[in-house]
Write a protein that binds this DNA or RNA. Structure first.
Lengths: 334, 334
DNA sequence: ACTTTTCGAACAATCGATTGTTCAACTTAT
DNA sequence: ATAAGTTGAACAATCGATTGTTCGAAAAGT
C-alpha cells in the first residue's frame, strides 16, 4: 500500500541509498546524475511516496514530537492551553501529542511512560501529582520536560506558571478595598501548587487587613465542587458578603447554586474568580476575574523546551507570569 | 540514557532474543530458565527499561496511535470533541495525536501527510476542505479514516455528524412558532457541509411557513464574523425580530455587537444558536440553543474507526445524530 | 600506453525490537 | 555405548531510512 524507498529502488533499478539521497536533496552532493534524479523523483511521486517516520526515528533517535499532558481538557483553561500549544508548535516542524490524565496520577505516570516509549523529543506537563519526583526522574533520563501551571517544591525541571500569589492578592485586595471582610474562598485541589499559593496569597492579604480567620472550603477544580460548597456556604449564618472561587469551573458551579437559591450577584453576594473566559462578559452579572496569561505561559514553556532540546543552557528556569484583573460587575462596594 | 534490549543483554550476558522473549512474557513458552528470567526482569527494572516503540512500530507496522485533526481548538465545540476523543481513546491502549488545521486546507493536507508518515493506525478528521478527494486518497492507501462534523458529497469514507437539517429545522420552527417571521441567519463557512445543510434546513422551514426570502449573511465560524454581521444587520430597517446563529462562536460575536448597541435579548431581538455551552445558562439572557451530541459523535466515530482498524465490515457508514433543542429565555413570543 | 582523477552509484552497518530457525549440551532411552 | 529427546538459548533476517566507505568505469593527465 504505502511505498517505501525499496519500492522506488526496485522500480528505478537504482539502490536504496541513491534513492534516499536524491529524495533528501543530496543528489548533487553525491553526484547522482540529473537523469537518475529525475527518474527517482518521478517514481516517488507516482507511487505517492511518503517517508516512514518510524524508520527515520529509529535512525535519528528523534521523533519531532512534543507531548502535552494536561489534567483535564474539559477545563476550559487547559483546553485553551492545549489549543495554544498545538497552534504554537505548528509550523516548527514538530507535532503535538496531547493526552489527558483526568487528574489521576496513575494515568499520568502511565502516559509519561508511553511518551518515553514513543521517544518524544520533549514533554510539557501540567501534572496532577502531589510531588515532582516522577518528573525529576524523566529529567534524569535526559528527556527535556517542562512543567506548566502545576509545579512542586524541589522540582529540578523548569516551570512556567501564573504568579498565583499575586493573582490571589489582587483578587482579595479588590474585595477588601470594596468593603468586604467576610469572604469565603472556594478552593480546588488542595495539594496542587497553584491552589496552595493562591490560598497563601488570600490569607496573607486578609491578614494584612487585620482579618485572621478566613473561610476556606472546597477540594477540587470541578463544577460539582463549586456547586456543593456554595450550597453548604448558603447554610451559614451570616452568609459571606463575597466569594472568591479559585477556578472558572468552581465559579460555574457556584453560580449554579446561587441561581437556584435566588441569591443575586452582586446585590446579595459579590463574586470574583480565577480564570477568564469569553462568556464572562455576557453573564447576567459580568464576572470580575483574575485572568491567567495562558498564551504567554505556553509560548514561554515551548521556548524553554526547545532550548532544552537544543541543549542550550537555561538562564531562567522558573518563570512566574503576572496575571491581570479584569474588573466587571460582580463585586459590589459595601 | 535510555536502556535498550541490548543493554540488558550485555548486563545479563544473554542474547537480545532471550531478553525480548522474557520481557514479553514468553519466557516459559521458549523454555527460558526461571533463573535467567529473574535476572532479566531484575536488570530491566534496574536500568529503568522502557521498550522503544519506534523499534516495535517498525517491526509491527503499528503505532497504536489515533490522529485527530480539527479545524480549530479555539472553538469550544472542537475543544469538546478533542477532549471527548482523547478521553474515550484513553485506556484502549492507543494514544491520541491531536492537531489543529486552523481552517486551512493546506495545513490540513500537510498534517494528513505527517500522520501517514507517522504510521498512525487511524485518523479522525473534521476537515476544513471544500471536498473530500484528499480524504478518499487516504482511504485508497488503506489507512482507516473517518470524518466527523464536516463531510462531503462523494465521500467514500464513513462519517458521523449531527443531523444539521433537523437541527436547523428545530431552531427555525421554534422561532416561527413564536411569531417570528423576519429572521436573520448568520452562517459560518459557506462551503462546509454542516453550514450548507443548516441553511437548507433553515430555508426549507421558512418556505414551509410561506416565507420565501430569507436573510442569510456571514462567512465563517468566528466570533469576529458574528460581530461584524450583527453590526451590519443593525443598520437594516426593519431590523429582524430574531437572529439564528449557526455556531457558538458566531453567537458570542453577535451578543457582543448587540450589547454594545444596547439591543436587548429577547426584548428587542430574539436569539437562538447552534451549539450548547455550560455558560449559556448564566448569560444575562440564558440562550436557547440547538445542542449537538458531540459525545455520541466521538464515541461512534471511534467505534467505526476501530472497526476499520480491525478490518471488520461496516454495515452503516453514514451516521447522522439527532440534536436537541435546549429552550432557555432568549426567544420572545410575539 | 599507463596512471591518476572524477563520476556515478552500490555495499554494508546501524538504530531497537521481533521471530522463525538452528544449535550446542545435557538427559534419557535402547 | 550410542542414538534419540529435551533444555536453554543463540543466530540471523526483517522492518525503513541514513550514512561512511568502497568500488568499478570513464575521463583526464603524463
Amino acid at each position: 500500500m504505502k511505498a517505501s524507498l525499496r519500492d522506488i529502488s526496485e522500480r528505478t533499478g537504482v539502490s536504496i541509498t541513491t534513492v534516499s539521497r536524491v529524495l533528501n536533496d543530496k543528489g548533487d552532493e553525491f553526484r547522482i546524475s540529473k537523469e537518475t534524479q529525475k527518474k527517482i523523483f518521478f517514481t516517488a511521486k507516482e507511487l505517492n511516496y511518503v517517508p516512514n517516520q518510524t524508520g527515520v526515528n529509529l535512525q535519528s533517535g528523534k521523533t519531532r514530537t512534543i507531548a502535552l499532558i494536561v489534567p483535564g481538557l474539559v477545563n476550559p483553561f487547559f483546553a485553551n492551553v492545549a489549543s495554544s500549544i498545538a497552534t504554537e508548535i505548528q509550523g516548527t516542524g514538530y507535532n503535538t501529542l496531547i493526552t489527558d490524565s483526568n487528574e489521576n496520577i496513575e494515568i499520568e505516570k502511565d502516559e509519561l511512560k508511553q511518551m518515553i516509549s514513543r521517544n518524544v523529543d520533549g514533554i510539557i506537563i501540567a501534572s496532577a501529582g502531589h510531588d515532582g519526583s516522577h518528573i525529576n526522574k524523566i529529567d534524569d533520563m535526559g528527556i527535556p520536560i517542562v512543567c506548566i501551571d502545576r509545579y512542586f517544591d524541589n522540582l529540578q525541571v523548569p516551570f512556567v506558571a501564573t504568579d498565583n500569589f499575586l493573582g490571589a492578592e489582587m483578587a482579595t485586595d479588590h474585595l477588601l478595598k470594596r468593603g468586604h471582610n467576610h469572604i469565603a474562598c472556594i478552593q480546588g485541589a488542595m495539594h496542587s501548587m497553584p491552589n496552595k499559593i493562591r490560598i497563601k496569597g488570600f490569607e496573607h492579604t486578609m491578614n494584612r487587613y487585620g482579618i485572621q480567620d478566613c473561610t476556606i472550603t472546597g477540594s477540587d477544580f470541578t463544577v460539582q465542587n463549586g456547586y456543593t460548597e456554595t450550597l453548604l456556604l448558603l447554610q451559614n449564618k451570616p452568609f459571606p458578603t463575597a466569594i472568591f472561587t479559585l477556578s472558572n469551573t468552581i465559579a460555574l458551579g457556584c453560580m449554579k447554586a446561587l441561581k437556584e437559591n435566588n441569591v443575586r450577584v452582586p446585590e446579595d453576594v459579590s463574586l470574583i474568580t480565577f480564570d477568564n473566559h469569553p462568556y464572562l462578559d455576557y453573564l447576567s452579572t459580568p464576572l470580575t476575574c483574575v485572568a491567567q496569561p495562558f498564551q504567554d505561559i505556553c509560548r514561554i514553556a515551548i521556548r524553554l523546551l526547545f532550548s532544552m532540546i537544543d541543549k542550550e543552557d537555561l538562564t531562567t528556569k522558573q518563570v512566574l507570569l503576572r496575571p491581570e484583573i479584569l474588573v466587571r460587575n460582580s463585586v459590589k462596594r459595601i
